[in-house]
Amino acid sequence: MLTFLKEMRGSVLVLSLKGNLDAITVPELKPEIDGIITDRRTAVVVDLAGLTLIDSSGVGAIVSLFKRVRALSGDVKVAGVTAQPKEIFRLLRLDRAFDIHPTVEEAMAKFPR
């Protein structure tokens, strides 16, 4: 099960994910990602503090969001990765692409004001 919340904090969109992001739940997230691109959000923080499980499909969804926002000359930062998702991020060396921070606040602070 996946729950998500989109919230504007100033000019930054914070997308908070809770539960499992995997082959079962990624189709639920795709319209939200499409909406972020349609709205041309160029400063996005993905908050994964509530995420308990991710698989390769979930990773693909976040990478897709990252690439599409980058194509708008924007950036996606990731916050709060713990437990199993943290191990997957480490294994796949996703820090190559993502600016990863312990908290949403720290991630937000990295965007130009």
């Binding site: 698989d55 390769s56 693909g60 990478v63 690439k67 294994l91 190559r96 692409a97």
Partner: peptide, 22 residues
């Protein structure tokens, strides 16, 4: 398998890599 040395991050191809790693 994905090229983890590349600066370009792939959207897919990680499933087998995860299996083999764990």
């Amino acid at each position: 398998p994905p090229d983890l040395a590349s600066d370009e991050v792939s959207e897919g191809g990680y499933g087998l890599f995860i299996m083999r790693s764990f």
